[in-house]
Design a binder for these strands. Structure first.
Ligand SMILES: [Zn+2]
Ligand SMILES: [Zn+2]
Ligand SMILES: [Zn+2]
Ligand SMILES: [Zn+2]
Lengths: 135, 135
DNA sequence: GACGAGTTGACAATGATTCTCAACTGACCT
DNA sequence: AGGTCAGTTGAGAATCATTGTCAACTCGTC
């Protein structure tokens, strides 16, 4: 019997391609698509398969290392983020992103939910606008 | 020069297929995909092209007649909704949806945004949970 | 009843994401 | 150093929602 009995998240094996993805993620500050990230990695010298980039990004977001959200037209975009629960204020034109948090909304969603008898709550909240630099 | 100079929303011409879509929308209370709706229309006797269903749904959501949101895997789903600004409390297992609203979040997002100098604000907020019936 | 912009539908095309599967790797043991 | 094996990778095929194409059709208007 191995030591990894429990179905919990196993530690991802560190490979050069995973490292490449993580490094790529460290290089920008806004949300990018898997394809753009794949592109960046290529430009940076490494060569990682597109499928691998998708797989890695997916795993990283499961683990909470990155946040994933969807563009207006449904494309998934990713960003390396802090581990604590938070939301995003995203510039519609340049993509500049600010992590925001506050007990207000958390409290509000929780009370609204229980008020209607819903349990096991989760929520998504993103704010879009035009940043100062893009006025 | 015509009377429809401004790029604003022209009134949609009432056709039998648009009617069919609207009727289909009236028949359920949760969010459904364009394909499911197309399916429903077919089952109900009418016969409307899938592309038309997509186009109609898109227009209706532009006009605010229906709300559109995205499933976890990026698929667009639609629901006939009230015209006023609101958010959704959706049951993760049966899809039962409640429209919710409140000045709290509206105010919060607005203040957070201006606090960071962002203008021209919009936001998305959805709450997921398990409804009383699905406990 | 004719006219023209708006609308439709069958089908092709696009494009992001996932699947397949044989070859490769990292961690561990002898 | 060599062996073992589950985890990982990559090239390309496969999926699948959504959009584009374009000739035929339709509604409201004159
Ligand atoms: Zn984040
Ligand atoms: Zn900006
Ligand atoms: Zn709604
Ligand atoms: Zn339910």
């Amino acid at each position: 019997m191995t030591s990894t009995e429990r179905g919990e998240a196993q530690p991802l094996r560190p490979t050069k391609q995973r490292t490449a993805v993580v490094e790529a993620l460290a290089a920008f500050d806004d949300f990018r698509s898997a394809q753009e990230i794949h592109e960046l990695i290529g430009r940076a010298g490494s060569n990682v398969g597109l499928a691998t980039v998708y797989r890695t990004l997916q795993k990283l977001s499961e683990v909470g290392e990155v946040d994933m959200l969807r563009t207006e037209d449904g494309e998934a975009i990713y960003r390396r983020c802090s581990a604590t629960h938070h939301h995003h204020l995203v510039c519609r034109s340049c993509g500049a992103t600010v992590e925001v948090e506050g007990p207000t909304v958390e409290r509000w969603t929780r009370s609204i939910a229980s008020e209607h008898g819903y349990a096991d709550i989760s929520h998504t909240l993103e704010i879009f606008g035009t940043c100062p630099a893009c006025r």
